[in-house]
């Protein structure tokens, strides 16, 4: 005879089993869809490039070696692949700058929205999401239209007599930054708003009551409380920014490669798929490590009162 406890145990086990069974389809899809393509990329990085693109099914570490080392085609010496490093550094620098810039613009914006009345907040949020209705490429071309030599800003300034020669803004790093900040700003504002909305503004008032300056309130009260939003927003901006392809090509003029262009070159005219695959995995690994360090450093320090 089964005791009541045993029956209960069985029921519990059954429930656990059912839960796993029911979630199995979702789990399988997630595992296959997320790791399947990555495994193929990993596999390709260890194969031999075919003569005209594609791969030959012969094991080779040449792809990985040429990520880090390059044989000089003129004096045949082996040295560190400085071209890859230069290109990676450019992508990384722009991604970090874009993240910081969106944070600088996004933080006050989110704070402004969070401090409105509940009804107007929805309107502001709605306005923030409007750019998402338009394709990324079209938004980028809109920026181009504004900053080009015969664009709105330059023709406006010339008409007003402030300048007589157009200022070259298009095809500069400045243009890339404007484009990236414009495109990625909503990705920063929305998570920031989500954590600011939960902010207890009585704590801010309490700070002022205790003679804290505005700066002190921001630094010691608001910022620590909305830190999860800052982390989430930074990650959401940083990841697409480091792989940015369209914005730098259209606004930067494509003279200097981004990491994404370098990868594309290997799958296109360069015809070196294993190197392209190895480069993709390298950038992914670096981003993952950087994010782990970042998240650990920013979220582990709990808010201390006292």
């Amino acid at each position: 005879m089964a005791t009541a406890a045993e029956i209960e145990k069985q029921a519990e086990a059954r429930e656990v089993r059912n839960r796993w069974l029911l979630s199995a389809p979702a789990l399988i899809i997630i595992l296959l869809a997320a790791s399947g393509p990555l495994l193929i990329v990993l596999l390709y990085s260890f194969l031999t490039p075919g003569p005209y693109g594609d791969v030959e099914w012969k094991f080779s570490t040449e792809g990985w070696v040429s990520v880090f080392l390059e044989r000089d085609i003129f004096d045949d010496t082996l040295s560190f692949a400085s071209a890859h490093l230069t290109i990676f550094w450019r992508s990384l620098r722009l991604a970090i700058m874009a993240t910081v810039a969106t944070l600088i613009f996004g933080f006050p914006t989110a704070y402004f929205i969070a401090t409105r009345s509940e009804r107007t907040r929805d309107i502001w949020l709605f306005l923030i999401t409007i750019p998402f209705w338009t394709n990324l490429l079209i938004r980028t071309f809109a920026v181009l239209q504004v900053i080009r030599n015969e664009g709105i800003i330059n023709t406006g300034l010339i008409k007003l007599g402030i300048i007589d020669q157009p200022i070259q803004m298009l095809y500069t790093d400045f243009a890339i930054m404007v484009g990236m900040v414009y495109v990625y700003l909503p990705l920063m504002v929305l998570p920031l708003y989500a954590s600011m909305e939960k902010l207890d503004f009585r704590l801010v008032e309490a700070g002022y009551d205790l003679y804290a300056s505005r700066w002190q309130v921001l630094k010691r009260i608001i910022f620590p409380l909305v830190r999860p939003g800052v982390v989430a927003g930074s990650i959401l901006v940083f990841i697409p920014a480091i792989g940015a392809y369209v914005t730098p090509s259209v606004l930067g003029g494509g003279k200097n490669m981004m990491f994404a262009n370098l990868i594309e070159l290997q799958f296109g005219q360069g015809r070196n798929w294993p190197l392209g695959a190895a480069l993709s995995i390298t950038v992914m690994a670096i981003v993952m490590v950087a994010l782990l360090v970042y998240v650990r450093n920013t979220s582990s320090s709990e808010v201390r009162h006292g």
């Binding site: 003569p51 390059e70 085609i73 400085s82 490669m257 262009n261 370098l262 070159l265 015809r271 070196n272």
Partner: peptide, 17 residues
């Protein structure tokens, strides 16, 4: 030929780095 294209890709990468 593929080996020549490989050389061109290297010069091309260096040009655009």
């Amino acid at each position: 030929p593929p080996e020549v294209t490989a050389l061109y890709t290297k010069i091309w990468t260096e040009l655009q780095k």
